[in-house]
Structure formats: structure tokens, C-alpha cells
């Protein structure tokens, strides 16, 4: 599915020309407008899933788009925890989606009737 950009706007006018940059998202090249956020560039390219929930693996995307909610966590150049909505796309940037993490310290699932310690 492709969403694309709002090229012409009745009040804001045509989208200004900018240089194109190219970054990698999970190894796939993504074209972005210089100065735009990784979240915006990915959405413009039809990518809405930014990570899998660390424990449950359910897909997650942007929620607030202005840095408040922390839903759009991605890994940039090997460092996790960046917000895709606040991080700018730039040439050659290596961006990875969030992945499911091991949960070694999770207690065994409680069975019905088990008492809480």
C-alpha cells in the first residue's frame, strides 16, 4: 500500500523542492526528503510498522508524531531507543525496526488457582 505525499495543497501551496537522501530501514533503501523525520519518510513509502513490541511481538507504529509517546522507538546505527518522529533521515543512515527481546526473568505463567507470592 502506498500513501505518498501531499504534493499540492490549496492553502500551503506546492511541496517545496528539496534534495533527496537515502537511508536503510532493515536493509531496504528508503528515499526521503532532506530534513524530514524517519517516521514521515517511512510513512510516505507505505511503511507503518516501526517495531515489534519487545515482549508480545505485536506490530507498532507512530502514535503522537511529536516525541511524547515513545511508541516509534527504532534503532539507529546500532543504538536503540531513538524516536522515529524526532530523528531526521540522512544519507546512508542505518535504521532498524525494534525487535522482540528475550524475557529470561519472566516467572512461569500462573495457573488458575495459584496463589500470588
Amino acid at each position: 500500500m502506498s500513501y505518498g505525499r501531499i504534493e499540492n495543497h490549496p492553502i500551503l501551496g506546492p511541496l517545496p523542492e528539496t534534495r533527496r537522501v537515502c537511508f536503510l530501514f532493515d536493509g531496504r533503501p528508503i528515499e526521503a526528503r532532506e530534513g524530514e523525520s524517519i517516521a514521515a519518510a517511512l510513512l510516505a513509502n507505505g511503511i507503518r510498522t516501526l517495531r515489534a513490541h519487545e515482549e508480545q511481538g505485536t506490530p507498532r507504529g507512530i502514535y503522537c508524531n511529536i516525541g511524547h509517546c515513545m511508541e516509534c522507538r527504532i534503532t539507529i546505527e546500532g543504538v536503540s531507543g531513538f524516536r522515529a518522529c524526532l530523528s531526521l533521515a540522512s544519507d546512508g543512515l542505518d535504521v532498524c525496526s525494534g525487535i522482540v527481546l528475550p524475557t529470561p526473568f519472566q516467572p512461569a505463567k500462573l495457573r488458575e488457582g495459584d496463589a500470588y507470592e
Partner: peptide, 25 residues
């Protein structure tokens, strides 16, 4: 509400008027 494609109304505003990216169809 955690499905990709769900966003706050303000997120859609910024995506539309600032980033100029279509939030969906």
C-alpha cells in the same frame, strides 16, 4: 489502538500540514 495506522489526531495534523505525508486513504 496499538495497531499501526492508529494515531493521535495531532499526529495526523503534523503529518499532513508539516511533513506533507498522507496518513492514509
Amino acid at each position: 489502538w496499538t495497531l499501526p495506522g492508529v494515531m493521535s489526531i495531532g499526529a495526523a495534523q503534523v503529518m499532513t500540514n508539516v511533513q506533507r505525508v498522507r496518513v492514509g486513504n
